[in-house]
């Protein structure tokens, strides 16, 4: 066991680093050193990190291939947007409502589908993701296929930063606990885990719910940054986008997911004018990573484990 003094030291150092990053970016935004273009990409980056880290909980740590993450993002985005636009709620309760609604959707979808294995589960989650989209298309109160327009831009850098940090900390602290080990044991060998007293069904549903909840958080932030949401934004290609990040970073590596999310955001920004090339590169990433490095860039290892794990509280 490391001495608690050292733990506190690392904790403080990390706080200082995070506060430094936050203040620096805030200063750059305030002094207009970061123009609109960079700010938009910064927001996308934070949202993508939340999406990738939360999907990684389901796909990477629990080992359940979900292809419906965009559906949960949609639930969060719509619920939060309705809260601020029609119900005059303030932003924070709206974000919370969006996340809880997405987690609830995760529960409702998870309970029946998580009995399925592997590729069947993948297709069922893809199906549910699409069903969510089709349902939204058919609800006139939220604009049908045109979606909701004129959502107030309430998502600012402090919200984005805080939401990203909270997502990472919650998921890392979960994973580095006895509950996290139970979740990972499901991925490793479901039958053996069950025999060792782990209620595998419950842990699958729990991971699915938490993952979905954070996807909802990402959706709520997304809706209040880009003014406009429509069902087509959350189709299964969006789910594949998130999958690419998780696969590239390494199934079961949070730092991998973060780095991949940053990389993919930058790539998307550079290839804005050539969407077809971007998708071809995505396709190549999926195929080549699976053939040559199926565990992803970081595998299930965490980057700079020694420094980070202290702060995230892992007992390494």
């Amino acid at each position: 066991m490391p001495s608690s003094k050292r733990q506190w030291l690392w904790f403080l150092i990390n706080i200082v680093i995070l506060a430094g990053i936050f203040t620096l970016v805030q200063y750059m935004i305030a002094t207009r050193m970061l123009n609109q273009y960079y700010q938009i990409n910064l927001a996308s980056m934070c949202i993508n990190i939340i999406l990738a880290v939360s999907l990684n909980l389901i796909n990477g740590f629990t080992g359940q291939l979900s292809l419906g993450h965009a559906g949960f993002m949609a639930v969060g985005a719509y619920v939060a947007a309705v809260c601020t636009k029609s119900m005059d709620l303030s932003f924070i309760p709206a974000i919370i409502a969006g996340s809880l609604a997405a987690a609830l959707a995760g529960l409702i979808i998870g309970v029946p589908t998580l009995r399925l294995r592997g590729d069947y589960l993948a297709i069922a989650t893809l199906g549910f993701g699409e069903i969510i989209r089709v349902i939204l298309q058919n609800i006139e109160e939220v604009g049908g296929p045109a979606g909701i327009v004129g959502i107030e831009r309430l998502t600012t850098w402090p919200y984005l930063f805080l939401a990203t940090v909270i997502t990472i900390i919650v998921i890392q602290n979960l994973i580095n606990s006895s509950y996290g080990r139970a979740i990972i044991s499901v991925r490793e060998d479901e039958v053996a885990a069950e025999m060792m007293g782990v209620n595998t069904t419950w842990y699958k549903v729990m991971a699915f719910m938490i993952g979905a909840g954070f996807a909802g958080l990402a959706g709520a932030l997304f809706a209040h940054y880009f003014y406009i949401i429509k069902p087509d934004t959350f189709n299964f290609l969006k789910s594949f986008d998130i999958l690419v990040m998780v696969v590239l970073g390494g199934l079961g590596s949070t730092t991998g997911a973060i780095l991949a999310a940053i990389f993919i955001t930058v790539l998307t920004a550079y290839l804005q004018a050539f969407p077809a090339i971007r998708m071809i590169i995505y396709a190549m990433i999926l195929i080549l990573v699976m053939i040559y490095r199926p565990q992803g860039l970081l595998g299930n290892k965490e980057l700079t484990r020694k420094t980070f794990s202290r702060f995230w509280g892992g007992s390494a």
Binding site: G118, I280, Y282, A283, L286, I287, P294
Partner: peptide
């Protein structure tokens, strides 16, 4: 693993679609 094969298949699908678009 079957997971790896499935992800590759998704990659192959995207590849055909977007090479055609290109």
């Amino acid at each position: 693993t079957r997971l790896a094969a499935l992800i590759t298949a998704i990659g192959a699908s995207l590849f055909l679609e977007y090479v055609t678009i290109f």
